[in-house]
Structures are given as C-alpha cells and as structure tokens.
Amino acid sequence: MNMKDFAVGAVAGAVAGAAVVEAVNRADRNVPAEKVLNNVKSAFKKEGPIEGSWIVMKTEPFRQKAVQLDVYRGGLTREIDGVFEEYEFAADAKTGTVVEITKI
C-alpha cells in the first residue's frame, strides 16, 4: 500500500468518525423549549387567537404508567366567544411531542 492510499483511507475514516460522533451528540440533545412552545401555539391558533403563553425552560421528569421521560411544562390562554380558556401541557423534551394537555 502506498502513502496516497493510506492518506485517503485515513481521511475517509476521520470523516466517518466525525459523522458518527455528531449523530450521537444530536440524539442526546433536547428540542429547544421555545420551539416546543411555538409548535403548541401554532396548533392552538388554528382554532382561534392566543392571549398569552408560557413555558418552563428546565425539564422535569414525567411518568405515565410504564413510560418515563423528561418534559417541558407550559401553558396558554385563549379567548373563545368572550370566554377565557386556560390550558397546561407537557411536551417530550427530546422530540417536542405533546404528551399531556389539561384544560384548567
């Protein structure tokens, strides 16, 4: 094997290793809380305007039956026919998927 073949193989291996490390690191990251809140607001806006909203930036453990995950907690207020409605939600921090919505 000559030096050129060795260098090409080494560079290809380094690039592949970097890609694997990036993929693993990306899998461990949470979806930003702001993005989760914006997605929930977008879903609710389809039914009417939103008066206010909030989200806790720190995750907390959530358990429902055998499923346990970290979630963001948040809420929003909207007005429907002159009546204010308040909702609280929990969203999976890894995927942003809403796992619970409660009308208060």
Score class of each variant (00 low, 15 high):
M3Y: 13
M3G: 11
K4E: 12
K4M: 07
D5H: 06
D5P: 00
F6R: 10
A7D: 07
A7V: 10
G9F: 03
G9H: 03
A10R: 03
A10F: 15
A12V: 09
A12S: 13
G13H: 05
G13T: 00
A14F: 13
V15N: 00
V15A: 12
V15R: 01
V15E: 00
A16R: 00
A16G: 02
A18M: 05
A18G: 15
A19R: 00
V20T: 09
V21T: 11
V21H: 09
E22H: 07
E22L: 11
E22W: 10
A23F: 04
A23S: 10
A23T: 01
V24T: 04
N25A: 10
N25W: 04
R26Q: 07
R26L: 02
R26K: 11
A27C: 00
A27W: 03
A27P: 01
D28R: 12
R29F: 00
R29H: 03
N30I: 00
N30G: 01
A33H: 12
E34W: 00
K35N: 08
V36S: 05
N38F: 06
N39C: 04
N39L: 07
A43V: 08
F44N: 02
F44H: 06
F44S: 03
K46I: 06
K46P: 09
K46E: 15
E47R: 11
E47W: 05
G48D: 13
G48F: 14
G48I: 07
G48Y: 15
I50G: 14
E51V: 04
G52S: 15
G52Q: 10
S53C: 09
S53R: 03
W54S: 11
W54L: 01
W54E: 05
I55Y: 01
I55N: 02
V56C: 04
V56R: 13
V56G: 07
V56F: 08
M57V: 08
K58M: 10
K58Y: 08
T59C: 02
T59P: 01
P61S: 11
P61A: 08
F62R: 02
R63C: 04
Q64T: 10
Q64I: 09
Q64M: 13
K65Y: 02
A66H: 10
A66M: 04
L69T: 13
L69M: 15
V71Q: 03
V71T: 12
Y72P: 05
Y72D: 06
R73K: 14
R73L: 05
R73C: 04
R73M: 03
G75T: 11
T77L: 05
E79W: 02
E79K: 12
E79F: 06
I80V: 09
F84C: 02
F84Q: 12
E85S: 09
E85R: 14
E85H: 14
E86F: 12
E86R: 15
E86Y: 14
Y87E: 08
Y87D: 06
E88R: 11
E88T: 14
E88I: 09
F89Y: 12
A90E: 09
A90Q: 12
A91K: 10
A91H: 12
D92T: 09
K94G: 03
K94N: 10
T95K: 11
G96S: 02
G96M: 03
G96A: 03
V98R: 14
V98S: 10
V98P: 06
E100I: 00
E100S: 11
I101A: 09
I101M: 15
T102F: 13
T102K: 15
T102A: 08
T102C: 02
K103H: 14
K103M: 13
I104P: 02
